[in-house]
Design a protein around this nucleic acid. Structure first.
Length: 296
DNA sequence: GAGACGTGGTC
DNA sequence: TGACCAAGTCT
């Protein structure tokens, strides 16, 4: 893999995403990374702008109620991310002087930040040299380096080692390569219908050289959605996002026909802290009304 | 390590 | 239509 060619291509062709601009703060980068987990850029962009205008610093988000945060998360999906980001913001505000940490291990200690996000923040917000491995990068490496049709099952240790050897010695160049690997996987070396004719590293791609063999590893598990608890939880939460005040149990019951499943999902949302019950038995998004405890 | 966890677009 | 896919994390 010729990473110099890749970097040149990135300079010339990268999408102009707002969290990549010079004036974007580390906080902006962190918010974008959390929102982008399993969620396409097109859906993230408008919400990210709203968040940056409304909560420009970790402490501003930390000062908001959980309910406001969950509502502002909208339909990005996996709303527990919103709660975790809120908690991370509170930790950053209280113990890191409102400054997003630049150290990978410190980032890893924050809720909702795992191996990918910690390194993405270190690299993209602080220009550090550290392997950033997401699904795009794994696919790019599988093809261009290993000559496989697609990446096999993830292995954090092996995947990071694969990327580590590709990174130039200096921080700035390495950070750019990290961004370029992701960009390549997102727009050229895509899962379906890769645009190899437009690929900057076509000439040295091991997959091309091997005659583009089909992926022969284990099939990736397919996630069902229709009829699952995930769908039911989404429906339940949707009722609360769309209303300002507390709702009654019968109102929530309209969201799903299967009572046992509905009850189980409501329970799990209460456990997750995505929904709260008021002292008088109504349901709300969290932190918007006094709980029985706070009412004393 | 497998499975849970939202949502919507594409082919 | 339904399977597959999208910058993962947590248990």
């Amino acid at each position: 893999m010729d990473v110099d060619v890749l970097s040149e291509w990135f300079d010339k062709s990268a999408r102009d995403l707002p969290w990549r601009r010079d004036d974007c703060t580390a906080w902006g980068v962190l918010v974008s990374e959390i929102m982008l987990q399993q969620t396409p850029v097109a859906r993230v962009e408008p919400i990210w702008h709203e968040w940056m205008a409304r909560w420009p610093k970790p402490s501003s988000l930390a000062a908001a109620s959980q309910g406001d945060v969950v509502r502002a998360w909208g339909k990005l999906g996996y709303p527990r991310r919103a709660l975790r980001l809120h908690a991370a913001a509170a930790a950053i505000a209280s113990t890191h002087d409102d400054v997003v940490p630049s150290d990978v291990d410190t980032l890893l200690a924050l809720p909702g930040i795992g191996a990918y996000t910690a390194r993405a923040v270190a690299a993209f917000a602080y220009g550090k040299r550290c392997p950033v491995v997401d699904t795009n990068v794994r696919r790019v490496v599988a093809r261009s380096v290993h000559g496989a049709g697609d990446a096999g099952p993830p292995s954090t240790t092996r995947d990071m080692a694969d990327v580590e050897v590709l990174l130039p010695p200096d921080d700035a160049s390495a950070a750019k390569v990290s961004a370029a690997l992701m960009e390549l996987g997102a727009v050229i070396c895509t899962a379906r219908g890769p645009r190899c004719a437009d690929c900057p590293v076509f000439a040295t791609c091991a997959w091309q050289l091997a005659g583009r063999p089909a992926y022969n590893g284990p099939a990736k598990p397919v996630q069902r959605f229709a009829g699952t608890d995930r769908q039911v939880r989404g429906r339940l939460l949707d009722v609360l996002r769309d209303t300002t005040g507390p709702v009654t149990r019968p109102q929530l019951d309209l969201a799903w026909h299967d009572a046992p499943q509905r009850d189980r999902c409501l329970d799990s949302l209460l456990v997750d802290g995505l929904i709260e019950q008021t002292p008088d038995g109504l349901f709300t998004l969290p932190g918007e009304h006094p709980t029985a405890e706070q009412a004393r």
